[in-house]
Simulated scan of single mutants.
Amino acid sequence: MEAQHLHGKPQAEGQWSTGFCDCFSDCSNCCITCWCPCITFGQVADIVDRGATTCGTAGALYALISFITGCGCLYSCYYRKKMRAQYNIEGDDCSDCLKHFCCELCALTQQYRELTHRGFNMSLGWAGNLERNQGVAMGAPVFQGGMNR
């Protein structure tokens, strides 16, 4: 399998594949995120953590933090930062926090769409995507060139 297939459509270096306010380009995810953001967050966290945190665990923790403090956006903001680092997407910590604080739903749906555009089937989770691709580690870093002095 070639890398292009594993990661979906190639993205411009440092760019998100969709805009921040393109929430309605995927109506089903938009509705799910609007009514139960913990589901979308759990799916994103499962992929970003590469299966170390399950969808259910991340979603439940997000819901608990949101219920107790009303600030689940702080938890999801951390995953936006982590995702940007994994895929070398432009942005900074301050803008991540502002996006999640001001429009949590748009931020979560953008992350969901980004992972979908990179070839992940979000309903399968990390383990399902690995199995689907016969154990090839998706999202593994690509090293270019050989050893340099």
Rank of each mutant, 00 (worst) to 15 (best):
C34W: 08
I47A: 06
C34Y: 09
W35Q: 05
A137K: 15
G42T: 02
W35R: 04
K81N: 13
G56P: 01
G56M: 04
I39H: 03
D22W: 05
Y62G: 02
F120D: 01
T116S: 14
S17C: 04
N88W: 00
R113D: 04
A52Y: 07
Q111F: 01
H117M: 12
D49H: 08
Q110R: 15
R113A: 05
C71S: 09
L74E: 00
E104C: 10
A58N: 05
E104Q: 14
W16M: 09
G56E: 10
E114C: 08
F20V: 00
M147L: 06
L74W: 04
G119F: 08
I39D: 01
Q111A: 12
F41T: 03
L115Q: 03
C71E: 04
Y112E: 09
G135E: 12
G14F: 00
W35K: 04
D46K: 07
R132P: 03
L98K: 11
M138A: 02
P37K: 02
A127M: 08
C94G: 00
C38R: 02
I89K: 08
C55G: 04
G8F: 10
A60P: 00
K9V: 09
T109F: 04
D49G: 01
C34G: 06
G139T: 11
F20A: 00
F101Q: 06
C30M: 05
H5W: 02
S17Y: 04
R132A: 14
L98C: 15
R149Q: 14
G8N: 08
C94A: 12
C23P: 00
Q110A: 03
E114I: 08
M138I: 13
V48M: 10
C106D: 10
R132H: 11
L61P: 00
G8K: 05
T69D: 10
A85C: 09
P10Y: 01
N88T: 03
D22A: 14
G146S: 14
N148Y: 00
Y87V: 02
Q15G: 03
Q110E: 05
F24Y: 02
A58P: 04
L74F: 09
Y62Q: 06
A52E: 13
D26I: 00
I89R: 09
N121I: 09
